[in-house]
């Protein structure tokens, strides 16, 4: 039963902490852009305002897609360990593959719902998002696979425990760099925010969303950010108590925000070329080093 409580705690942290971080990120971006920026709690206002509005539905596929996206994201966020074995809600199901599969449910739900809206901009956006997934997941999975091979486990909390001697960031730095570049793509930060490019495709998938749907997908996005960064922190930045985890999370997020605020976005084919070029090569190099046992 404690697992359920921990899962609920996970979700609460995901919601409140990540929304706060979004606010801080907006503040940082604003300072880079020589603005003052909105208050740090602006994202809370956005979500609750959107949730209080009457939505406009575009058919049952659209409704179902939004719910599926949110459900997938919640299910994933509930089982991700937060930096230690103690904060692992379900120690038997925190397998990396389970998380990736559940995570894909959310992404596919979003794709289905948005295409269901019938707007061509949304379809283009979804196509781009799925193409981008193809781009970043390949190097990411190769890095993670080599790590699983190295530690002979796919369980996230065991991977955290194995890092007691030294963080994976230091054990396999090349892999960490590749994973961070992939993380930027997962977060949809620049230069990889191709799927929602406002000036090109009118914000893509979100174009037909209104009111509660927008609010729900914002929450889904928040849970996705939580899962993506938590995975990176767990796998590369070692364990520690709960506050250490939050601090590492914050640092990774701020790094992503800073990079994002000074780069323009790629074209879609440039993105794919980029991911399947240097990061993929580095991922293979990392895998090779791991296979040969040449780790730091």
């Amino acid at each position: 039963m404690t697992g359920v409580y921990k899962a609920i705690f996970n979700l609460a942290i995901a919601f409140f902490f990540v929304l706060t971080l979004e606010g801080i990120g907006r503040k940082i971006t604003a300072r880079v852009q020589r603005r003052i920026g909105p208050p740090w709690y602006q994202s809370f206002i956005d979500v609750f305002k959107a949730l209080s509005k009457h939505p406009f539905s575009n058919g049952w596929i659209f409704d179902f897609g939004v719910l599926m996206a949110l459900g997938g994201a919640i299910a994933t966020a509930a089982i991700v360990p937060m930096g230690s074995t103690f904060w692992t809600p379900f120690p038997n199901t925190d397998n990396f593959f389970v998380i990736m599969y559940l995570f894909a449910v959310g992404a596919l739900g979003m794709a289905m719902g948005m295409v269901g809206s019938g707007n061509p901009w949304a379809s283009i956006g979804v196509t781009r998002a799925l193409t981008q997934m193809l781009g970043y997941e390949l190097p990411y999975l190769i890095v993670l696979a080599s790590m699983m091979f190295y530690y002979k486990t796919a369980s996230i909390h065991l991977l955290i425990e194995k890092q007691a001697g030294g963080w994976n960031l230091l054990v396999m730095p090349i892999g960490a760099i590749v994973a961070f570049i992939s993380l930027l793509g997962m977060l949809g930060k620049k230069p990889f925010d191709i799927a929602i490019a406002p000036a090109e495709i009118a914000s893509g998938p979100m174009v037909e969303l209104s009111g509660k749907y927008l609010g729900l997908l914002h929450i889904m996005h928040v849970f996705s950010i939580f899962v993506e960064i938590t995975l990176f922190v767990d796998v590369f930045l070692g364990g520690g108590n709960f506050w250490w985890f939050l601090l590492k999370f914050l640092i990774v997020w701020i790094l992503a925000v800073l990079i994002s605020s000074v780069l323009p976005r790629f074209r879609i084919e440039q993105m794919l070329k980029f991911y399947w070029g240097v990061p993929l090569g580095l991922a293979f190099l990392n895998a090779f080093f791991v296979l040969m046992g040449w780790t730091l």
Partner: peptide
């Protein structure tokens, strides 16, 4: 040019 390219920092600097 930051608008179409997604380099919003440039847009805000220019406007400021």
């Amino acid at each position: 040019i930051g608008g179409p390219l997604g380099l919003y920092t440039a847009s805000h600097w220019g406007m400021a």
